[in-house]
Design a protein around this nucleic acid. Sequence first.
DNA 1: TTGTATAATGAATATTTATTCATTAATATT
DNA 2: AATATTAATGAATAAATATTCATTATACAA
Lengths: 191, 191
Amino acid sequence: MRSKDYSKIDLVFRAGLKLIVKEGIAGLTMSKLAKQAGIATGTLYIYFKSKEELLNKLYDKLQAESKQRFMKGYDPDEPFRTGLKRVWLNYLKHRIERYEESVFLEQYYRSPFITAEQKQIAESMKQPVKELIQRGKDEKLVKKDFDNEMLFLALLGFIRELADEHVTNVYILNEENTEKAFRLAWDTIKI
Amino acid sequence: MRSKDYSKIDLVFRAGLKLIVKEGIAGLTMSKLAKQAGIATGTLYIYFKSKEELLNKLYDKLQAESKQRFMKGYDPDEPFRTGLKRVWLNYLKHRIERYEESVFLEQYYRSPFITAEQKQIAESMKQPVKELIQRGKDEKLVKKDFDNEMLFLALLGFIRELADEHVTNVYILNEENTEKAFRLAWDTIKI
DNA sequence: TTGTATAATGAATATTTATTCATTAATATT
DNA sequence: AATATTAATGAATAAATATTCATTATACAA
């Protein structure tokens, strides 16, 4: 008797992300993936029915994980700006530390593999942050003449650019920089 | 004697963009492409040596075109805010009207097809806008305590999000909205 | 220990996709 | 109108890639 080594699933996921950053989903083949993960191609099919299922599961896993990370440590008893900063930094750090994942999520979103249900879930992820912005308005700290969605997009877009440029070594973020960037973001939405 | 019908090149490009928005570069096959363009697969090889060459050329063409569009109509004699608004709107409109192209450019950037030279050129595209921001500082209209790159990223990121949400029908832009969005962008960088 | 069930392997096979090429169609030239 | 030249076609072939499966290795139970 011999039992499955489920740690291989994560091994494969990590190998996949690494390859996708380099050559996109278009460049991902099962043999390259197996080689990168250090296992045989056949072994992939012990843990996944097909390439499609493999990518679907990777997406679902990352989606679930990132949802958790965004609001982590947020405490509604703290002042609004403090809370916003926490969530803002959460997202920036997430984009940087898990850059490979972000690249995958965006590529997957426009691949032949994504399902309608998965598209739905992606949209619902924004809700908590929009509610946070609303709190800022209620406390008369955030501009009321712009709707939550627009303010959200301004914050989100800036973070994405910052993270992308940092990871590709075009604009390096350090503590000072990051602090400044948040002040700029705050300037954008504050009354 | 019979001459080549070079209009087919553009036909193929357009068909390609359409398909790539739906299923990414990962989903693009030469036969799907031919079918979408309404020609035979063999005909593709009259105008392009290979799939790789086809995508390389599409990229080069779009790159050249978009470079032109960003600064179009900019007049250094007009006031700074007016000029910035023009460029800002240029880019927003470009992202919306040529959404398919934008999707392609981003996908291509992380595909097995891109060349080192092409990566270079992409980076150099930002230069004119950064110079514009510098002009704003010189005229004491733009915050001096944030560097040009950071201010640029804040503007760019917001535009990208706006355009993406508009095209995917999540956040529809009209004239009023767009006007507001620019005011928010201006708030972000102005002293 | 030994037997046995199942994980792991990777070469073999199936499938998909890129590319070629023999054939047909179109059009410029005579 | 006849001829010649090249575009266009799409089925045939080549190449790349996904998937299977006969074989081997491993680890648990008896």
